[in-house]
Amino acid sequence: MTPLEWAIVALAAVGAFFGGVAAVGIVRLPDIYTRAHAASKSDTLGAVLALAAVALAIQTDLSTIKAVFLLLFMFLTNPTAAHAIARAAEDQGIRPWAAENREGDP
């Protein structure tokens, strides 16, 4: 394998790992706010790394540029979406889960 291929595989693998972390986080974390953390951060990085792998793999100039733009927009839109969800939850009066209620309440 060439170094480029290694890079592509590494990016895709790390991206997949963080995508997995996001999924595990959504299952394991206790409430909407903490889950939004997993969804906004790990998911962004996972998708962005995968896109970076795509950009390297395609190699034709135009599509690479498009992939890079997609990547940039992920950085802009993902936190915005997470913010919208968290804010909607706050508007609904949902209280954040706190460490005290680790026992008992979910």
């Binding site: 906004s40 951060k41 950085f75 936190p79 915005t80 913010h83």
Partner: peptide, 12 residues
């Protein structure tokens, strides 16, 4: 947005 993207913090 930067706060949301970085260590364990999320702007509500």
């Amino acid at each position: 947005n930067s706060i949301t993207l970085t260590p364990g913090t999320l702007t509500i």
